[in-house]
Design a binder for these strands. Sequence first.
DNA 1: ACCTTATTCTATCGGAT
DNA 2: ATCCGGTAGAATAAGGT
Length: 323
Amino acid sequence: MTGTSVDATDQRTTRNGKRNAAPERERSECPECTGRIAYDEEHGERACADCGLVLDADGIDYGPEWRRFDDGDDRCRVGAPVTARKHDKGLSTTIGWQDEDAYGNRISGRKRRQLQRLRTWNERFTSKNARERNLKQALGEIERMASALGLPEPCRETAGVIYRRAVEEELLPGRSIEAMATACLYAAARQQGTPRTLVAFASVSRVEKLPVQRAYRYLSSELGLKIEPADPIHYLPQYASELGVGDETERLARKILEAAKDRDLHSGRSPAGLAAAAIYGAGRLTDEGLTQERIGEETGVSGVTVRNRYRELLDAYGATRDR
DNA sequence: ACCTTATTCTATCGGAT
DNA sequence: ATCCGGTAGAATAAGGT
């Protein structure tokens, strides 16, 4: 398999499957002298162009990190993207199980025996030591649970990355692979904004809830995982389409949430609940005819929570507009 | 490992349009 | 008749010791 024959245009993905786009940096003014803020790519710093005040250091370079030396500026990657979901990052060769040649014809008994031997040895080489086998098992478990819970690919990928870090940091000895794998997936799901409850994980996992909880706590403290509460606005598009509300309502809900954010209504509240309440409140203002019950059905947020939130949200929204 | 605290959920009921 | 708003008690998640 040579990389050069791969169609270049489809391979423009990074390791985690995301597009290679730099996030926009907000253009702002220097708080000291109101000068222009410039971003220094080379040093990863954001600093005032006039007085030199450094606002943000150690930025991440989102640009492509490879170049090509022949003519052309098409800096595509070649080959399949590397994945953290396979214990060997998907780099190793696999030998198909079918006893067929490339044209689908049956192959002779002698060849079959040869293939069988090759498979056996390939297996022995690719997962040679205990550590690799553990990794293989854990990643298999992550895949299994993720499918059971319907978690998307980036989430599984992240879980794999976290698990690898846990292995590197030697967090595994003394605790079950299964619990740790479940905890990794739980963490990844939250990081990726597709959270599931701990109970849901316990139901698909082979271990109880408690060990998973402990493993997760251990993980997040030892690895310093920064898991921030999701922004309620992220839930809006999903909920809006499930409920079939119009663009107008969705836009209004977005405004309501932004107003709420200004007044610190977020702290401690569940993002999903806020999003659901915002849609309900917006629907009320635009006469969408949404009932609390229907919101609850589609979003999994109870009517009580919707009630408690949407009043606060509308108050905040009204107050912000009056100013 | 246990306990505390804030939040949300389920079930339920009275009142309003 | 359906929807809204409120309440009580259980469950949950997260943090502290």
